[in-house]
Simulated scan of single mutants.
Amino acid sequence: MPPVTVLNAEGASAFLIVADHAGNAFPRSAGQLGLAPAEQVRHIAWDIGIAPVCRALAQRLDATLIQQTYSRLIIDCNRPPRSPASIPEASERTPVPGNRGLGEAEISAREREIFHPYHDRIAAEIERRAQAGRPAVLVAMHSFTPVYLGVARPWHAGVLYHRDARLAGAVLAALRQEPGLCVGDNEPYSVDDSTDYTIPVHGERRGLLHVGIEIRQDLIADAAGQAQWGERIARTLTAALAATPGACPA
């Protein structure tokens, strides 16, 4: 199974949608990491519901979508390689036996076969657009569990950013105009060089407009919720980009 999938590669939109935790596949070589089947479909293994939301979003925007196929427990494609959370030995309160005591060869293989192909594909798409004089607006899509370590999370969605809040600020304002939504400002997570990879490397270092968006998983657990949030985020991104000074058209 390829480590990365691309949808709508020739999409005309400036938006480039990426999903670091879209899949929960486990390669045969890893032996499911010693996890029971029930653990392999929990939020610890992937961002539940985000893949169909991203597909709906890409379709509505005519945007290119790049998604990671394998479980974040094999190697987390939004963590700097060799950082403690890159190949976690435990997630939430769940031990991950197959990640304990890995040697250099095993770690390097996961980086070479999964992490780098995914990020190389994102970099290649950005470079292709630069060579063609086309803009790229990076949108990193994630979902989050409603309850983490026994604590309920009140947010329906969150907007994430670090040094550059140009687009994120406009997205946050647009989402907060949606009736009945509780929207987190860098909640339930924030972006940092030590804990994140995609936005710092592909967004900030290249000077691209970018934003991270988190959606609570219970809201996108079925097809109706996924379609609703795909439409909502498409509408939000379009409005936010138009409200961002100096931004290119979508």
Score class of each variant (00 low, 15 high):
1 M>K: 06
3 P>L: 03
4 V>R: 01
7 L>K: 10
18 V>K: 06
21 H>F: 02
23 G>A: 08
28 R>I: 01
32 Q>C: 12
33 L>F: 01
35 L>N: 02
35 L>M: 01
36 A>L: 15
37 P>V: 07
38 A>I: 04
39 E>N: 04
40 Q>P: 04
41 V>T: 13
41 V>N: 06
42 R>Y: 01
43 H>A: 12
43 H>Q: 10
45 A>G: 12
47 D>H: 09
48 I>T: 14
49 G>D: 05
53 V>C: 10
53 V>T: 15
56 A>C: 13
59 Q>A: 15
63 A>W: 10
63 A>R: 05
66 I>R: 08
66 I>T: 03
66 I>C: 06
66 I>E: 08
67 Q>C: 14
67 Q>W: 10
67 Q>F: 14
71 S>Q: 11
72 R>K: 08
75 I>G: 02
76 D>H: 13
77 C>D: 07
81 P>L: 02
81 P>S: 05
83 S>A: 10
84 P>R: 02
85 A>I: 00
87 I>K: 02
88 P>G: 11
88 P>W: 02
89 E>G: 07
89 E>D: 12
94 T>H: 09
100 R>F: 00
104 E>K: 08
107 I>A: 02
108 S>Q: 04
108 S>Y: 00
108 S>K: 00
109 A>W: 03
112 R>A: 15
116 H>K: 09
118 Y>P: 06
120 D>N: 08
122 I>E: 03
122 I>A: 00
126 I>A: 00
126 I>K: 00
126 I>M: 05
126 I>C: 01
127 E>I: 03
127 E>L: 05
130 A>Y: 02
130 A>C: 11
130 A>R: 15
132 A>N: 06
133 G>N: 07
136 A>G: 12
137 V>A: 07
139 V>N: 08
141 M>N: 04
144 F>C: 11
145 T>H: 02
146 P>N: 14
148 Y>R: 14
149 L>D: 09
152 A>T: 11
152 A>G: 09
155 W>N: 11
155 W>Q: 14
157 A>D: 14
157 A>I: 08
159 V>D: 14
163 R>Y: 13
164 D>T: 00
166 R>D: 12
168 A>M: 04
171 V>I: 05
173 A>P: 15
174 A>C: 13
174 A>E: 14
176 R>D: 05
177 Q>T: 15
178 E>A: 15
179 P>L: 11
179 P>I: 13
183 V>Y: 06
187 E>K: 15
192 D>S: 15
193 D>S: 00
193 D>C: 01
194 S>K: 14
194 S>C: 15
194 S>N: 15
195 T>P: 02
198 T>C: 03
199 I>N: 10
200 P>G: 03
201 V>L: 08
203 G>R: 07
204 E>P: 02
204 E>D: 07
208 L>V: 09
208 L>C: 13
210 H>F: 08
211 V>K: 06
211 V>I: 09
213 I>E: 04
214 E>N: 05
214 E>A: 05
214 E>C: 05
214 E>R: 09
216 R>D: 07
217 Q>A: 10
218 D>I: 00
219 L>V: 14
224 A>K: 09
225 G>Q: 06
225 G>I: 12
225 G>K: 07
229 W>I: 13
232 R>K: 15
233 I>M: 15
235 R>Q: 13
235 R>H: 10
238 T>L: 13
241 L>Y: 06
242 A>N: 09
242 A>R: 14
244 T>A: 04
248 C>F: 12
250 A>L: 12
